[in-house]
Amino acid sequence: MGELARYLVLAALLFGIGLAGVLTRRNAIVVLIGIELMLNAANLNFIAFWRHGPHPEALTGVMFVLFAIAIAAAEAAVGLALVIAVYRHYRTTNLDQIEEMKG
């Protein structure tokens, strides 16, 4: 496997693991960890393509990942705040038991 391909395969496997977790777990916070893993897999792809691409001096991939990291941090903060708010209401973070739309 070449230099680039191995990073892409690693990212694909990481994405798969994250996706499996998101689909099978029922704890909201663990699902959030899975989403973060998938996001990270995408970041790894960006960096790998940037390093192996024709114009690494343009730093496009690096910039994209920096912004993605900032947004992921915001997403985690809001997501966890939502989980805490939901927990306060339903007394559970089990996604199966949170089924009503009305508060």
Binding site: V9, H52, G53
Partner: peptide, 26 residues
């Protein structure tokens, strides 16, 4: 699990089938 395996398997096979495998780092 099957869906996740399918997705990552498809992506991996697409990567290996593409012309990207041999590219060296800049």
């Amino acid at each position: 699990l099957a869906i996740a395996l399918l997705v990552s398997g498809a992506v991996v096979s697409a990567i290996l089938g593409s012309g990207l495998t041999g590219r060296a780092p800049s």
